[in-house]
Nucleic acid binder design. Structure first.
Length: 295
DNA sequence: CACTTGACCTGTCCGC
DNA sequence: TGCGGACAGGTCAAGT
């Protein structure tokens, strides 16, 4: 599921909801989804929520962080009380169905809300749901994040200013003989791009996803750079892509796929030239493109 | 080393 | 309606 725009959207939602709350308790419903010591976080206050690549992080006052990787089907859903909701302003759009915990719930975090937000019913909670159990939650020391295997060789964040066409050229040059879309999916090349936005970036760049990296000229790499930045920015603007599992922290869906050029549009007309969008498998992943617009 | 394929796990959808 | 196979926003390890 979640690629950079989805995790970023969850991060922005959580920042508004849980910074300042104290973790009262943690309940692990599936041992394989949780790593680290839950006692390191119980009783501690949340001071920040951040994202690196596709990983979501909750930072605590004691220099511990809780990392979440949602993989294909993970969800991070915050549930408040009605009173807390109204105090914070606005009712969330809850597109997600059913109640929690459900059979996909793997970890539950219980918060002690500040007194002024307290309702008699209950304090707020955070659910980590993950149908396929590929995802994980892990508690690590903040200073040791970069030692984590997943973080060790991560490529640059594509939405930071210092990420340029030149940087992209340098990064993909590590994968000369690879189809460009597969190179974009490599987290050591670029952090946060996944299967939806890789297809979209290639479309915006007007490059066939199967083209070999070594075959691309500077102008094409520049277009690819623009495609990556544009599609990720658009993904965040529309709150991410809700195909099946993804919902934001408040349970609302994302609308990017209503505007996507190619992803999940096999058999539909290209938004630019009206030719039919095609699908094929590249590196084992479904890949969508327009044969007319992408060369 | 660079690249490809299958495994991890659960659920849904589609064709017979 | 049932059954089998393909497929799903992602990494990993083990192949070639």
């Amino acid at each position: 599921m979640p690629e950079l725009p989805e995790v970023e959207t969850i991060k922005l939602g959580l920042q508004k909801k849980i910074i300042g709350l104290k973790i009262k308790d943690v309940e692990v419903l599936n041992q394989g989804s949780f790593f680290g010591n839950s006692q390191d976080i119980v009783g501690k206050k949340i001071v920040d929520v951040f994202r690196r690549a596709k990983v979501l992080g909750i930072e605590l006052e004691n220099n511990k962080v809780i990392l979440f990787h949602l993989k294909m089907s993970g969800q991070v859903i915050w549930l408040g009380t009605d009173k807390a909701e109204s105090v914070r302003g606005g009712h969330p759009t809850k597109d997600i169905k059913g109640s929690f915990p459900n059979k996909s719930t793997r970890v539950v975090f219980y918060f002690s809300d500040p007194l002024r937000l307290r309702s008699k019913a209950s304090d707020s909670k955070l659910f980590f749901n993950d149908q396929r159990k590929f995802g994980w939650v892990r508690v690590v020391e903040k200073s040791k994040i970069e030692d984590e295997r997943f973080f060790k060789n991560l490529g640059p964040e594509p939405l930071q200013k210092k990420f340029t066409a030149k940087v992209l050229k340098h990064q993909i040059s590590k994968r000369k003989n690879t189809p460009i879309k597969i190179a974009l999916l490599d987290q050591e090349v670029l952090a946060g791009v996944g299967n939806i936005y890789a297809s979209e970036a290639c479309f915006i760049a007007r490059i066939h996803p199967g083209r070999k990296v070594s075959d691309l000229n500077d102008n094409e790499i520049k277009r690819l750079y623009q495609g990556v930045v544009e599609t990720l920015t658009s993904g965040i603007k529309y709150g991410g892509s809700s195909k099946t599992h993804y919902f934001n922290a408040e349970g609302g869906r994302g609308y990017f796929l209503d505007y996507a050029f190619v992803y999940d549009r096999e058999g539909k007309e290209c938004r630019i030239c009206n030719l039919i969008i095609e699908k094929f498998t590249l590196g084992g992943r479904g890949t969508y493109f327009c044969r007319n617009c992408q060369k």
